[in-house]
């Protein structure tokens, strides 16, 4: 290849003009919502600390418990992040979690299958269910909302097929896994579930930002038609995204089982909405194409901290969690709108 023959000396492109301005770059930056969520988390924490420090709010375990108590939500929200980034939605998350708890409890408690066999099986069923929904969405060009709504009913119904009543798990291995703790400095600990959820999170960050598949997910959410014309295998990517979500839901179901040591047809009812809320509060655009999994972590932590603050307050009804979540969700969706308008 010879040197550039294009003569640009005539019109020296102005660097300053060609590059986005710094301030505008911050306002238009895709990271802004993540910063806002992080700032919100810090502010809420400081607020909580100044109000409840006599009640040991300042101990490390309060923070560690955010991970321990919300590990299943984090994993579910990571799956939802994939789907939402690709421009879709998955409403079947809660049902899939409920079904997984039910199936696991039944097989372990009633059929005495070893946990180490049941867990992979549950994950495989979750992934297959997600793949099936992805296939239907892609192949028949149906709204993901409708297809996953069908999934929501299907898996919730299947819970009752497995067993009508809730099953307590007293299996020795499960109990030991549930009690397994990792000691951290400063007299704090993380449960096995919390650690596993962080592993899933790290894997998701890697996949989304450092693999071709991850970038295809973003491309799909940016503009599906363009992605197709650019040669992105849209169908395969879409199916894969719902497979990931189904897998994460099943994984979250296993963590939930571990956390609560039972299976129940009504477990995790409506949890998909919490997961979607965490994703949006974490700064991912509901229209797809823009967002970060680390934002989703922050979203989960903010939701967890709201619950913690309300429990520390003591007198407030837990319904205030929902009110606060709703208000936050609205605020973040408005922020997204304002940013989208600024960009234009």
């Amino acid at each position: 290849m010879t040197a550039p023959v294009l003569d640009t000396s005539e019109t020296p492109p102005k660097r300053a003009a060609d590059r986005p301005k710094r301030f505008a770059a911050l306002l238009g930056s895709k990271r802004l919502p993540v910063y806002v969520t992080a700032a919100l988390f810090v502010a809420m924490y400081i607020g909580g600390y100044s109000r409840y420090q006599n009640l040991n709010f300042g101990t490390g375990q309060v923070v560690a418990n955010l991970f321990v108590d919300n590990c299943y939500l984090l994993v579910a929200a990571v799956g939802a992040t994939f789907v939402i980034l690709s421009g879709g939605i998955d409403l079947s998350i809660g049902s899939m979690i409920g079904f997984t708890t039910m199936l696991t409890a039944f097989l372990v408690q009633k059929e005495h299958w070893p946990v180490l066999l049941v867990a992979p099986l549950a994950l495989a069923i979750g992934a297959a269910g997600g793949a099936l929904m992805g296939y239907v969405i892609h192949e028949f060009e149906i709204q993901p909302f409708i297809v996953t709504l069908a999934g929501l009913f299907l898996f919730r119904g299947l819970c009752e097929m497995v067993n009508k009543e809730s099953i307590q798990i007293t299996d020795h291995t499960v109990t030991r896994l549930a009690l397994f703790h990792i000691q951290l400095p400063g007299d704090t600990f993380l449960s096995l579930g919390a650690v596993l959820s962080l592993v899933v999170l790290a894997a998701a960050v890697y996949v989304l930002h450092h693999t071709r598949f991850g970038r295809r997910v973003y491309a799909l959410g940016g503009n599906e038609h363009s992605a197709l014309l650019m040669g992105v295998p849209v169908g395969r990517t879409k199916i894969a995204v719902y497979t990931v979500s189904g897998f994460c839901s099943a994984f979250a179901g296993l963590l939930f089982t571990l956390y609560i040591q039972s299976g129940d047809p009504l477990h995790a009812l409506g949890l998909e909405l919490d997961a979607i809320a965490a994703v949006v509060i974490g700064g991912t655009l509901l229209t797809g194409g823009s967002g970060y999994v680390l934002g989703t972590l922050l979203g989960v932590l903010v939701l967890g901290l709201i619950k913690t603050l309300i429990s520390f307050e003591g007198t407030l009804s837990s319904w205030w969690t929902k009110i606060a979540t709703g208000a936050l969700l609205l605020a973040f969706i408005l922020l997204q709108r304002v940013m989208a308008a600024k960009r234009r």
Partner: peptide, 17 residues
Amino acid sequence: NLCPNLSVAENILIGRE
């Protein structure tokens, strides 16, 4: 027909990263 949310570099080389 590009993806506005991706970087310029990704748009040029997507599929051939």
